[in-house]
């Protein structure tokens, strides 16, 4: 841990619908001078998330929007899903090497998994070693982790849930009450 840093390059991964709503409520509370620049990641074609983040960034802070392809499509064959997964990993690698975040904020959409997994490996190999990954499990999850949560539980630095029952799954899990 380092103390008194001036600012953290903060990557914020937005999903669709509810995930975006929950994440933007957190982003609104961040201190803009500490968590800057804000590097938003949205899935290709998710104009709704873009519109909503522009709404909260309209005061003209320092931010950027990156677009990545969706990692999983419905009715995709096993073989082609391996190819899309590899493509997606490569895309995340380029994204992370280019943006070099100090902090990644994710809350469970499918797009956050490849980003966080690649970011974890970059940490392990000391390529972007000081990056912290914070994951907030969705408000909808009361008793069990989502698939994204299960994959990312041990790869993240901060793992937060919003209900008491689910916080008992692992000692690593943090619980600050409901965020929504």
């Amino acid at each position: 841990m380092y103390l008194n840093v001036s600012a953290a390059r903060t990557m914020i991964i937005l999903g669709s619908g509810g995930h975006t709503t929950e994440m933007l409520e957190v982003v609104k509370k961040l201190n803009n001078e500490r968590y800057t620049p804000r590097l938003y990641v949205v899935a290709e074609g998710d104009q709704n998330s873009v519109d909503r983040l522009l709404e909260i960034e309209k005061e003209g802070g320092d931010y950027k929007i990156y677009t990545i392809t969706r990692s999983r499509k419905v009715h995709q064959s096993y073989k082609s899903s391996i190819i899309t997964t590899l493509k997606s990993a490569y895309e995340c690698l380029i994204l992370l090497l280019h943006s070099r975040p100090d902090l990644i904020l994710a809350n469970g959409p499918a797009t956050c998994v490849p980003v966080c997994v690649v970011a974890f490996f970059l940490k392990v190999f000391y390529i972007n070693g000081s990056c912290k990954i914070a994951y907030i499990e969705s408000y909808c999850r009361v008793k069990s982790l989502s698939l994204s949560g299960k994959i990312l539980l041990y790869l993240t630095d901060i793992f937060v849930v919003q209900w008491p029952d689910i916080s008992k799954i692992s000692r690593k899990i943090l619980y600050f009450g409901r965020l929504t």
């Binding site: 841990m1 380092y2 103390l3 008194n4 840093v5 953290a8 409520e25 957190v26 509370k29 961040l30 201190n31 500490r34 100090d102 902090l103 912290k132 914070a134 907030i136 408000y139 630095d157 901060i158 937060v160 919003q162 943090l174 600050f176 009450g177 409901r178 965020l179 929504t180």
Partner: peptide, 19 residues
Amino acid sequence: ESGNINKFIEYLDDYMGFI
């Protein structure tokens, strides 16, 4: 009553070294 995000933000600020 809506939830409270501040406790998480405090934790994050602390974790990231902002005091």
